[in-house]
Structures are given as C-alpha cells and as structure tokens.
Design a protein around this nucleic acid. Structure first.
Lengths: 140, 140
DNA sequence: CTCCACCCTGCACCATAGTGCAGAGTCAAG
DNA sequence: CTTGACTCTGCACTATGGTGCAGGGTGGAG
C-alpha cells in the first residue's frame, strides 16, 4: 500500500500478467504495448493497468486472433471514429476463419478415418491402404 | 518415347509433381527425397517414380501430416519390420490431433459467437462487450 | 560498501515450410 | 559458337511468436 506501487517494472508486469519478461519487450516492439515511461536509469515504468493490456492480448490470442489482429483490435478500441460494429466485423471474420479451418480439419479427419477403415491393421506396410492412398493419384 | 526419358531433371520433376524447384531441393535436404544420382555436370537425375514420391509427400501434408511426420511415414514404408498397424497408429494419432484442434477451434467459435450476440453492433468501442470481455478477468 | 537480483540493449536462435537471389556453370537449339 | 533456358551452390529472407544469451548498468537490503 505504499505510494511507490503506482508503477511496475517489466518483471513485475510480466509476473502479474503471467508472461515472460522478453514477451513484454516483444509486444512493445510489435506496437502492442505503448512505449512506457523510463526512469533515469532506463528502467521501464508501467502503469498498473498495463497488466490488463497484456491480459487482453492473451485473451484475444486464445480466441484465435494473431498478434497483428490483436493490434488492429487495440487500434479500434482507441480510435473514437470506430464503433462496436467494426469490432463485430472482426469477430465475424474470425468466426469465418475458424469455420474454414474446422471444415478443412474435418475433411482430413474423414479421409483418415476412411483409410483406417480399409486398413487390416496387420500385414506389410507396402500393402497398407493408408500409404497406398497417399502414394497414388487417388484424389478423384 | 526416347530412351533419354528414363531420368528427370529437377525442373522436370518439379513440373510433374506440381511443386517449385526449390521445394524439391528442400525436401532432399530434409531427407524426404533420396539423394539422387548426378550427371558429371552435377545436375540431379531423378528416376520417374520420384514424381510419385513427391506427390506422396503432398498428399500426406494435405491430410495434416507435418514434413517430420511424413518422413516417419516414409521410414515405415521402407522398414520391412514395420507393419500396417504402425501406419494405422500414426493415422489414429493424427485423427486425435485433428480432433483436439477442432475442439479448441469450436471453443473459440462459441465464445466469439456469444460475445457477438451481446454486442449491439453500434455505439462506441469502449462499451463494446467483445473488447470488454477480452479486457478483463472474465474467464471463470 | 558490497552483493545479488533485476534491468538494459542487441543479436542470434527455435520450429515450420518454404522462397529468393547472386554468381557461376551447363545444355541444347539454331 | 552463341544464346537463352536451365542448373548448381550457398546464403539470406519471409511469417509467427516468441526464447536465450552476452556484456554491461542499477536498486535496494544487509
């Protein structure tokens, strides 16, 4: 509860935000974190709400946004000319991305399961239908 | 139909397998393609069935296998001590991988859709529930 | 005043799957 | 024999999201 708690060092920020110290500096280089104030010694001084910012980045990543996209979301949240609709648009695009990825993964999964069904599970590898399917023109 | 057609240059192999020339050399460095014979000039000479090999790699990649995993599949197909069951095991592991990825993507998708539902679609970004959700501790 | 933990910068490196380029040599058609 | 397309090697670079290290400087407790 002392008044010196109004600023955090990188290490303290990293700890509170549960990331590594180099990650913080990496985010700064990438423009995801504002360039912080410095002490005369050069030590970075972070306001306590930087912790929220770093967590925001992590949460957005968990939702599938790349760091570049997180940067765009942060830009939206700062630009007063942008509205909730802009954010929604990004979210909708990300949902579409996710659905495309899922569809692709499902196609892979189906093909693999079909191949596994045709595979006796014994015998030499050179008669394995899984390998044979990959080996030849079978795509049509 | 001339007898010189028994060997391919990198360029010819690349063309038939529908990949780039550097990709062929990259696969060779990675041990995915056997080191080919060389002319006295140093030009690589590929047997025609190298085309099948490259296509195998591409097909396996399309099914979600990384190049490292493709290498393992190729090793299985060569090793006479390995059976179809070994290949099946790899395929099953890949299906499990795919299912884990899909589950993760579905979680992301659900959260995003829920957030979009709460979002009015207008108003300033600083009241946007999507951004607010990422901003704070909301995960529990 | 010393000591150790912490901080600074810049650079190199990890994996993944290639792409690009420079500078030199080669092949084959005309 | 020239010309243009192709090939050779090695190295650097792309994107992604960091990690690690060397060689210093700093902060505060004892």
């Amino acid at each position: 509860m002392n008044s010196s708690a109004i600023a955090l060092t990188v290490g303290q920020l990293a700890k509170h935000a549960e990331v590594g110290v180099p990650t913080i500096r990496f985010y700064e280089r990438r423009g995801l974190l504002p360039v912080p104030a410095r002490r005369t010694s050069g030590y970075r001084q972070y306001p306590p709400d930087s912790v929220r910012r770093v967590r925001f980045i992590r949460h957005a990543q968990e939702l599938g946004f790349s760091l570049r996209e997180v940067q765009e979301l942060l830009a939206l949240s700062i630009d007063p000319g942008k509205s909730c609709a802009d954010v929604r648009t990004r979210a909708a695009a990300k949902v579409a991305d996710i659905e495309a990825k899922t569809a692709s993964l499902n196609r892979m999964r189906k093909v693999l399961l079909k191949l596994m069904n045709n595979c006796p599970g014994d015998g030499p590898t050179d008669a394995c239908p899984i390998l044979l399917a990959m080996d030849d023109e079978h795509e049509r």
